[in-house]
């Protein structure tokens, strides 16, 4: 499944729009990690645990997006956008959405 954040797919023609598809996930790290992160707020630096957590959740959200798209019979998702919001202390929601389309070679 082709996923792209452009409106066009180079070398391919979009033959059909199948509507918007989305994927989202809410994740939290365990309390130990949160405590370590609040210590890190004194020292500064990268929070590797959180970076990892967020990129894992993003992969998960994209996987769900692709699942929805293939259920619609699409073979590509274009114009993909990400959105992140922290909905509670230590938990954040990753939301990804795009347009499911059918493309074919030019």
């Amino acid at each position: 499944m082709l996923v792209s954040n452009m409106e066009v797919v180079p070398g391919k023609r979009i033959t059909q729009h199948l509507g918007m598809v989305q994927g989202s996930t809410v994740r939290a790290k365990h309390a130990g990690r949160d405590i370590m992160a609040s210590f890190k707020n004194f020292f500064g630096g990268e929070l590797k645990g959180y970076t990892e957590l967020l990129s894992e959740s993003r992969d998960e959200a994209i996987a769900r997006l692709q699942e929805q798209a293939s259920a619609l019979g699409a073979n590509a998702v274009v114009n993909v956008r990400f959105s992140t919001s922290s909905i509670a202390a230590g938990a954040s929601e990753i939301f990804v959405y795009g347009t499911a389309v059918i493309v074919e070679d030019r």
């Binding site: 792209s4 890190k40 929070l47 993003r58």
Partner: peptide, 14 residues
């Protein structure tokens, strides 16, 4: 074409 991304979380210091 393929979607690529990079992310980072950085913390302030006191």
């Amino acid at each position: 074409s393929q979607l690529v991304s990079g992310s980072v979380v950085v913390s302030v210091d006191y």
